[in-house]
């Protein structure tokens, strides 16, 4: 694959992640922080199609630009900490341990660690550990559902993209 083609595809992926992030802000949430995390689909697609480095680039750019579209600067901090932690975890699971995990499992683990990263940041900012206990159970249950759903979507998208783009190297 040429460099130009790669950059173009990555740019499209990032913009799609941003669009998903934006659309998601219209969907009501069950609990604060318990979001669908649709943008994670694009992170996983990148991870499968390109690899760790590219996935992390997508995560960082999406995490910085996303909150700027609709949110606060503190939002950047939350999405960065969550995104990077979950990006690392998913990369390790997919690139090193993929024989043990399905995409749904990896996506769920990603969602779990996305929430953990955000909560750790929140308790750091608030200066209290109590938030962890109160929010963790709800966010974990949400992660099971959204993680499975996102993993499933990723699987279908990948099946389609691999046929159409023939970009897997």
């Amino acid at each position: 694959m040429t460099k130009t083609r790669k950059i173009t595809i990555l740019a499209i992926i990032i913009s799609q992640a941003l669009v998903l992030h934006y659309i998601e802000s219209f969907i009501p949430v069950l609990a604060p922080g318990a979001k669908l995390g649709l943008a994670n689909i694009m992170t996983m697609v990148t991870l499968v199609l390109f690899g760790f480095k590219e996935a992390l680039i997508v995560v960082v750019i999406r995490s910085v630009l996303g909150p700027l579209l609709g949110g606060s600067v503190t939002g950047i901090l939350y999405s960065l900490s969550g995104g990077i932690l979950s990006g690392f975890i998913m990369s390790v699971l997919y690139l090193k341990l993929d024989i043990y995990f399905s995409l749904m499992g990896i996506s769920t683990a990603g969602a779990v660690f996305h929430n953990i990263g955000q909560l750790l940041t929140a308790s750091w900012i608030f200066g209290t550990i109590g938030i962890l206990y109160t929010y963790l159970p709800v966010l974990m249950l949400a992660a099971v559902v959204t993680g499975y759903f996102n993993g499933l979507v990723t699987r279908y998208i990948l099946g389609y993209l691999e046929k159409k783009l023939e970009i897997r190297n």
Partner: peptide
């Protein structure tokens, strides 16, 4: 069928929920 690692993820989640209830 969920793979072995997926089950591990769910067990991990259950443990976390249990721990946070203990903390609460």
């Amino acid at each position: 069928k969920p793979k072995i690692g997926d089950i591990f993820v769910y067990v991990f989640i259950l443990v976390l929920i249990g721990l946070s209830f203990l903390g609460l």
